Computed example of a mutant assay.
Amino acid sequence: MSGVFVNFNGTSILQLMSFFLLMYLLIKYLYRPFLNLLDKRREEIKSEYDKAENARKEANELKKKAELEMKNLNEKINTMYEEAKERVKKYEESEKERVQNEISSMLDKARKEIAEEQLKAEKALRTKVVTLTIALASKIIQKDLDDKSKREFLMNQLSRFGGKE
Rank of each mutant, 00 (worst) to 15 (best):
M70K: 14
K123C: 05
E95P: 07
A115G: 06
S104M: 01
E92C: 11
K143G: 08
I103C: 04
D144F: 03
I114F: 09
Y91C: 08
D147C: 08
T79V: 08
K76N: 14
K90T: 14
R87H: 13
K148T: 06
K71P: 01
K123M: 05
K85N: 15
E86P: 04
K71Y: 05
Q100S: 11
K148C: 07
I114C: 09
A115L: 10
M80L: 15
L136H: 01
L145E: 02
S105W: 03
E82I: 11
E86F: 13
V88P: 00
T133P: 01
A124L: 07
E122A: 15
K96V: 04
R111Y: 03
K112V: 03
E113P: 00
A137N: 10
L136Q: 02
A84W: 12
R98Q: 07
Q100I: 08
K85D: 14
K89P: 03
E117R: 10
N74T: 10
E82Y: 06
E75W: 05
K143P: 00
M80S: 12
T133A: 02
T131E: 04
K85C: 12
L145G: 04
I103S: 03
E97C: 07
E82L: 15
E75K: 13
S138E: 15
V99A: 12
A121K: 05
K148A: 09
K96F: 08
Y81L: 14
E113M: 03
E75L: 11
I114G: 05
L107T: 00
T79C: 08
D144E: 14
M70L: 12
I134D: 07
E95I: 13
L132V: 00
L73S: 09
K76L: 13
N101T: 03
K76V: 12
K89A: 14
K123Q: 05
R126C: 04
N78D: 11
S105L: 12
L107V: 05
V129S: 00
S105V: 08
K123A: 06
E116W: 06
D147W: 04
L136K: 01
Y91T: 11
K112A: 07
A84G: 13
A110V: 03
L125I: 08
R111I: 01
V99E: 06
K123S: 06
L73F: 09
K85I: 14
E95C: 13
L145R: 04
T131H: 00
T133D: 00
E83N: 15
N78H: 07
I134R: 06
K128Y: 03
V88C: 04
L125T: 07
D108N: 12
Y81E: 15
I141G: 10
K76D: 14
M70Y: 09
Y81K: 15
R87S: 11
I134K: 11
A137Y: 03
